[in-house]
Amino acid sequence: MATGFPTGLYYQFGERLKKELIQDGVELQVKTTGGTIDNLALLGDPKSGVKFAMVQGGVGDMEKYPNLVSIAGLFYETLWVWYRESAFKNDGGHLQALNQLKNKRVAIGNEGSGTLP
């Protein structure tokens, strides 16, 4: 199962699932990756050996990956936006809508994660 970074929630969940499944005689191999985008690529590549992966909801393009099937929602993933008031001085120092981020430099996640695209 492709998960994500070793410090991330997807990987931690994968390790817990592995421990649970072994009790039922099922061996799960947990693969660390860069995250959702890497996981989709692995699922789309029949040579990767990956048959199951954790993917952030709403990221998979059904035209690009028509054979993927979602089996469960696991986490509620909140979008947190942190900013410097000085970056929005023309708006009274407040970010009230995501469209205010246009033309701003924004850090959105690690390469391969679901938040990067």
Rank of each mutant, 00 (worst) to 15 (best):
A2E: 00
H94I: 15
Q23M: 10
N39R: 02
Y83K: 09
V69I: 12
Q100A: 03
E85Y: 04
L79T: 08
N110G: 15
Q96V: 01
Y10E: 13
G44Q: 11
P66F: 04
K18L: 04
V55W: 06
L21C: 08
K102E: 03
A87Q: 05
Q29R: 14
I22Y: 01
T3C: 15
D24I: 12
F5D: 15
S48L: 01
G49N: 02
F88C: 04
Y65N: 01
R105Y: 13
G44A: 13
Y11K: 02
K102C: 02
A97V: 09
E27V: 04
T7W: 13
F52M: 04
Q12T: 05
T78E: 09
P117L: 13
T32M: 07
V55G: 01
L28M: 08
T36H: 01
D45P: 05
Y83C: 09
Y10K: 15
P117Y: 09
E20R: 08
A2S: 00
T3P: 10
P66W: 07
L40C: 06
L21K: 13
R105V: 11
Y10Q: 14
F52H: 00
S86I: 09
L42A: 06
Y83I: 03
E85I: 09
M1W: 04
F52N: 02
Q12P: 02
T32P: 11
G114W: 05
K51I: 06
I37A: 03
Q12M: 06
V59R: 07
H94T: 14
T32S: 12
G34V: 05
S113Y: 01
G58V: 10
N110C: 12
L98Y: 06
T78M: 14
K31A: 10
